[in-house]
Simulated assay, not measured.
Amino acid sequence: MSVYLHILSPGTHSLKYFYTGSSQVPNFPEFVAVGMVDNVQMFYYDSNNPRAMPKQDWMNKAAEGDPQYWERETGIAVGTQQVFKASIEIVKQRFNQTGGVHSWQQMYGCEWDEETGATDGYNQFGYDGEDYVSLDLKNMRWIATAQTAVITKHKWDQDRALTEGLKHYLTQICIDWLKKYVDYGKSTLKRTVPPSVSLFQKNPSSPVTCHATGFYPRSIMVFWRRDGDQVYEDVEHGEVLHNEDGTFQNSVHLTVKPEDLDSGRYECVVQLSGVQEDFVTKLERSVVETNHGNTGRTNPGAEGSGPSGLIIGAVVGVLLLVAIVCGVVIWKKKKDAKKGFSQANTSDDGSNSSNNTAPKA
């Protein structure tokens, strides 16, 4: 199963909430929730310690003018937890299931392009790791992606107040809070940190890896060029991973012949959002780090470069995945991000940043 986080274009900001309700999962909370702004975790709740809490210092600004902010967020999470528990039981009956490990998951959120003013909203539910039902916001109708979800689709289609409430939240309330959060965290969310780039190879027959780490924001392009043209064959791209310090890392692997190491034809190119200059590292045998101890770090100054940095970063990424599974919804299929977030029934008091009670399946 894969976790998919939408990589936003420059100038685009996102607010996302990820909920997971589960049953009979050993050593795992019955309900967990995570909120993220621009893919940075800023909110956390789980049923083992039932209190919503900030994950970024700048989130405390939300409570400066609203002392009840975190109490209200806790109340929302507690109410949603009960509805998720009921939804699991409802869907289990539809599948004729009596016991075992099961999950009911939700993603919702919105995006705002700071440059153009364009906005969008997303809505999706899943059951046991598979897509279940989602909201077509444009046409104001629900789409069932599982046969057993047709009942839920018809039930929610008939509840026009629910659908209209979702539209209002996703297109207005969510956007308003997104703008507030971006302003609260602008020193973090709008910063730019250049990458540290290194080349390494496990052994002479292994691909050469170009590893960029310590960069921010997440939006980055890492690729190989040969004689000035981008290489597509014999290239494998890695996923963007989190570093423990809040920065990111990414790698791209190139299969080359040993004689190509000193041909001068290849170079790794890193393009970071918000930075005009490309970071270019020419492929030369002398700068490729191997198990024999050659040093291949370039652009020094950021932690986590080289093979050890990649391994550490990957471990951190796995640990983060385990932690964020409390909030990041796990779907087996990677979906287009514009079909990837969901929202539950909301009220229109203009004060809540996340949703109120979610509808039962």
Rank of each mutant, 00 (worst) to 15 (best):
S2V: 09
V3A: 05
Y4G: 15
S9P: 10
P10S: 06
L15D: 02
K16R: 13
E30D: 12
F31Y: 12
V37F: 09
V40M: 04
S47P: 07
N48V: 12
P50A: 12
M53K: 09
M53T: 13
P54G: 02
Q56M: 15
W58G: 00
N60W: 00
P67H: 04
Q68S: 12
Y69E: 06
Y69M: 06
E73A: 11
I76V: 05
G79T: 00
Q81W: 07
V83S: 05
E89K: 08
V91A: 12
Q97V: 13
V101D: 11
H102T: 00
W104L: 04
G109Y: 02
D113R: 09
T116Y: 06
A118P: 01
T119K: 09
T119W: 12
Q124T: 12
G126F: 11
D131E: 09
V133C: 02
N139M: 11
M140C: 13
M140D: 10
I143R: 15
A144N: 03
A144K: 00
T145A: 10
Q147T: 14
Q147P: 09
A149F: 02
T152Q: 08
K153M: 15
K155Q: 07
K155R: 13
R160V: 08
L162H: 09
T163R: 02
G165P: 00
G165C: 00
Q172K: 15
I173R: 05
I175R: 01
I175D: 00
W177A: 05
L178P: 01
K180V: 15
K180L: 14
Y181P: 03
G185V: 04
G185S: 03
R191G: 13
T192L: 12
P194A: 01
S198M: 02
F200Q: 06
K202T: 09
S205M: 08
S205R: 10
T209W: 03
T209Y: 12
H211M: 13
T213I: 15
T213H: 02
G214D: 00
S219W: 10
S219A: 15
I220A: 14
M221Q: 02
F223H: 11
F223L: 08
R226M: 13
Q230G: 11
Q230K: 15
V231A: 07
E233I: 14
E239N: 10
D245C: 06
Q249M: 14
Q249V: 07
S251P: 11
V252P: 05
L254H: 05
T255S: 15
T255G: 05
V256I: 14
P258T: 00
P258Q: 01
E259D: 04
L261P: 00
D262Q: 02
S263K: 03
S263F: 01
G264W: 08
R265C: 08
R265I: 10
Y266V: 05
E267N: 10
L272K: 04
G274W: 07
E277S: 14
E277Y: 07
L283N: 00
L283K: 00
E284V: 10
S286Y: 12
V287L: 14
N291K: 02
N299S: 11
G304C: 06
S305Y: 04
G317P: 07
V318E: 14
V318Y: 07
L319M: 11
L320D: 09
V325E: 04
G327N: 05
V328T: 15
V329H: 07
V329G: 05
I330V: 14
K332E: 08
K333F: 06
K333L: 04
K334I: 11
K335Q: 15
A337Q: 08
F341G: 12
N345D: 03
T346H: 04
S353N: 02
S354K: 07
N355I: 02
K360D: 03
